[in-house]
Write a protein that binds this DNA or RNA. Structure first.
Length: 340
DNA sequence: AATGCCGGGGA
DNA sequence: TCCCCGGCATT
C-alpha cells in the first residue's frame, strides 16, 4: 500500500507520528471502510496478493475521498475506526513484536458491536520475504523506510513520496477465534499473486501504484487503509457455484458496467458443503484458511445468499401461527420447510 | 415496513 | 444443542 507523506512528516519521530495518527483517528478524513475487521491467526499469513487501490480508469472504485487533496498534511493512517490498542497480556514474553513500538496508540474509538475480544492491532510489513510485525504504524513505516527503502536514518533525501507496504492486523489476545471471521469477497484478479516490489528493485522514487496503474491520481495513492486482509474459506470451494449471482453487468449503451460478482470461495454460505456427503469424513476438518490481501471490497461486500422469493413459514402461517413454523424459521434461521 | 436469516449469545 | 434475538440485507 502506498502511503503518501508530506515532507514535514518525514521528520517526525515516532512520538509525533503517533500523535498525528491519534488525531487522525478522530478526523472525518479518516476513511474507515465499512468492512468488518478481519482477524488473522498468528502465522496464518501468506504472501498475500496486493493490488494498488486504483484499478479502473473509470474511477469506479471511488473509495478514496477527493477531500484528500485539500488536506495534504493528513495522510490517512492505517487505522480503521475500530482500531484500538488492546492491553498486552503480561504472559507474552516475545512474539516477535518490536517492543519498542508498543503502546503508542490509544484510541477510544467505538468498538464494533459484539466484538468483545480484546485484540491487538499490529502492522505487518508486506514486503516480500519480510513479514515484520510492529505494533504501530509509525514503527512499520520506519521499518519500511529504513529496511526496504534503504533510507537509513531518515535524514537523507526524500521526495516526499514514499510507499509503505504494510497492513493492519488484529490479534486476538485470547486466541480463541480462528481467524475465520466475517469474510470479504476477493477479487478474482487476485488469484495470482500480484507483483511485489523486491528489495533490490525498489528505488526511493518508485511508487508501486505508479508502476501498476496509469491512472495515478493523488487520490488513489492514499492511505494504507486500502488494504484489507481477507480470509477465504475453501470449505465452500468444493461446490463451485454454477450460477454466480450478479457478475458483470453492462448497461445497454455500454458506457458503464458494474461488477457484483460473488466470490465463490467466500460467501456461499447458503450452499455449504454438507458434512454428510461430498466430503470424506475426517478429511474435511482442515478447511484451509488462506489469506489474501485485496483492495477494499467496494463492489460487493456483505454478500449474502440472495433471498429466495418463495414464501416462507413466516409469510405462510403468519406471526400469529408461529408455532406452525419450521424450527429454522422460528429461530430466525434459513427456512427449512420452503427451501428455494 | 415487512421479511429472511446471519451471527451471536444464553441456558 | 436448543432456543432466542439483534441487526442487517432484501423485498
Amino acid at each position: 500500500m502506498c502511503f503518501r507523506k508530506s515532507s514535514e512528516e518525514l521528520d517526525m519521530d515516532k512520538v509525533t507520528a503517533a500523535m498525528v495518527l491519534t488525531s487522525l483517528s478522530t478526523s472525518p478524513l479518516v476513511r474507515s471502510p465499512p468492512v468488518r475487521p478481519n482477524e488473522s491467526l498468528n502465522g496464518s499469513w501468506k504472501e498475500g496478493g496486493f493490488v494498488p487501490s486504483s484499478t479502473s480508469s473509470s474511477g469506479y472504485w471511488s473509495w478514496n475521498a477527493p477531500s484528500d487533496q485539500s488536506n495534504p498534511s493528513t495522510p490517512s493512517p492505517p487505522l480503521s475506526a475500530d482500531s484500538f490498542k488492546a492491553f498486552r497480556t503480561p504472559s507474552q514474553p516475545d512474539d516477535g513484536i518490536d517492543e519498542a513500538e508498543t503502546s503508542n496508540l490509544l484510541f477510544d474509538e467505538p468498538i464494533p458491536r459484539k466484538r468483545k475480544n480484546s485484540m491487538k492491532v499490529m502492522f505487518k510489513c508486506l514486503w516480500k520475504n519480510c513479514g515484520k510485525v510492529l505494533s504501530t504504524a509509525a514503527g512499520i513505516q520506519k521499518h519500511i523506510r529504513t529496511i526496504h527503502l534503504g533510507r537509513v536514518g531518515e535524514s537523507d533525501y526524500s521526495d516526499g513520496e514514499e510507499d509503505f507496504y504494510y497492513t493492519e492486523i488484529r490479534l486476538n489476545t485470547d486466541s480463541v477465534a480462528d481467524g475465520l471471521s466475517s469474510l470479504s469477497p476477493v477479487s478474482p484478479s487476485l488469484a495470482s499473486p500480484p507483483s511485489f516490489p523486491t528489495q533490490d528493485a525498489i528505488r526511493p522514487e518508485t511508487s508501486c501504484a505508479k508502476t501498476e496503474t496509469k491512472l495515478m491520481t493523488p487520490l488513489s495513492r492514499s492511505a494504507p487503509t486500502n488494504l484489507y486482509l481477507v480470509h477465504t474459506d475453501h470449505a465452500y470451494q468444493a461446490t463451485p457455484p454454477v450460477n454466480i449471482p450478479g457478475s458483470a453487468k453492462f448497461t445497454p449503451n455500454g458506457s458503464s458496467f458494474s461488477i457484483s460478482w460473488q466470490s465463490p470461495p467466500v460467501t456461499f454460505t447458503g450452499i455449504p458443503v454438507s458434512p454428510t456427503h461430498n466430503r470424506p469424513a475426517g478429511s474435511g476438518e482442515q478447511k484451509q484458511s488462506h489469506t489474501v490481501l485485496s483492495s477494499p471490497p467496494r463492489v460487493a461486500f456483505g454478500l449474502r445468499k440472495p433471498r429466495g422469493e418463495g414464501k416462507k413459514c413466516r409469510k405462510v402461517y403468519g406471526m400469529e401461527n408461529r408455532d406452525m413454523w419450521c424450527t429454522a424459521c422460528r429461530w430466525k434461521k434459513a427456512c427449512q420447510r420452503f427451501i428455494d
